[in-house]
Computed example of a mutant assay.
Amino acid sequence: MDDCGRVDDRQGTAARGHSAATLYEASTHSLACSASLQPAWPGAEVSGRAFTVRGRGGDNLALHHAVLQAPSGTVLTVDVQGAEYGHWGEVLAVAARTRGIAGLIIDGGVRDTEAMSQMGFPVFSSGTSVVGTRKDWFGQFGGTIRVGGAAVRSGDLVVADADGVVIISAEHAREALESADERVAKEAAFMDQLRNGATTVDLLDLPSIERTQSQSGP
């Protein structure tokens, strides 16, 4: 909980602490967003249920209203068509933090990245820009949007960290988390074997140089 009594999921409780890479590899139902979506500041990470917003490039009125509409603990997940404007900055980040919003994923530009880093508000965007925006269109909330090339619906699980942004459909989220739990346990045993001298070639049954040479003959 944050100091306003609202859920703050920046520590990854919605994803049980699993990384984006682990969840992507553990589930066949996960979607990886384009690498164009990057953390706005080093160390940013967030997980939670998506609250989807469809806006217009160069117009951020939808984002102001999304802050009012989104349930506490959700991740604002926004399609503004990758437009290179400063759709989101320190003012909206403070407003969102106060209302318990966990973070922002936006296919479009943001600004004030240093200020958001200092306050620890996690943002993933397709770029940064100082160019200002209009405030004309209220936008659309809920439903399916596309962010970084991946389809996202309100309620889907969103996990974002230094490795990328992953979307898992709401109906498969529990299954994905359980698969990730199993994967992490197996990887822990795998790491122990490596520390005790086993090789990745043997453990993964990869082709070896010696085996290949013996099969090809002199």
Rank of each mutant, 00 (worst) to 15 (best):
Q215H: 14
G217M: 10
G5Y: 12
F138D: 07
V152W: 04
L23D: 00
E90Q: 09
G86S: 10
V201M: 01
S125G: 05
L157C: 09
S47P: 04
G43K: 05
M119P: 00
S126D: 13
E45C: 12
L204S: 08
L68A: 06
Q213K: 15
A151N: 14
I167W: 00
R153T: 08
L177S: 01
V75P: 11
S129T: 08
S216K: 15
E84C: 07
V123P: 01
D3T: 12
G58E: 04
E84I: 02
S36G: 13
A170N: 08
R99F: 15
V159I: 15
D112N: 08
A188D: 12
Q215W: 13
V46F: 14
E114S: 09
L203Q: 05
T98D: 15
Y24E: 01
A160C: 12
L157R: 06
L206V: 07
D2Y: 07
G43D: 05
S154R: 02
Y24F: 13
A115H: 03
R134E: 11
H64C: 06
G58V: 00
V147N: 06
S117E: 06
R153E: 10
R10K: 14
T199Y: 10
G143A: 04
V158G: 12
Q213T: 14
E84L: 13
T133P: 04
L203D: 06
V46K: 14
V94Q: 10
G164C: 13
I105K: 06
A189V: 15
G103K: 00
G48A: 09
E171G: 01
G48W: 08
A173S: 15
T98V: 08
G17W: 12
V131H: 14
L68E: 07
G43Q: 05
S179D: 11
S27H: 01
A160E: 07
A96E: 06
S216G: 14
S208I: 07
A173T: 13
L61F: 14
H29N: 11
F138P: 02
T13M: 11
S154E: 01
H87A: 01
V75W: 04
T199C: 09
S216I: 15
R6P: 05
Q215K: 15
S30W: 00
D202P: 02
S47Y: 11
R211I: 03
M116I: 06
H64D: 12
R10E: 06
G197E: 02
I101G: 01
T98H: 14
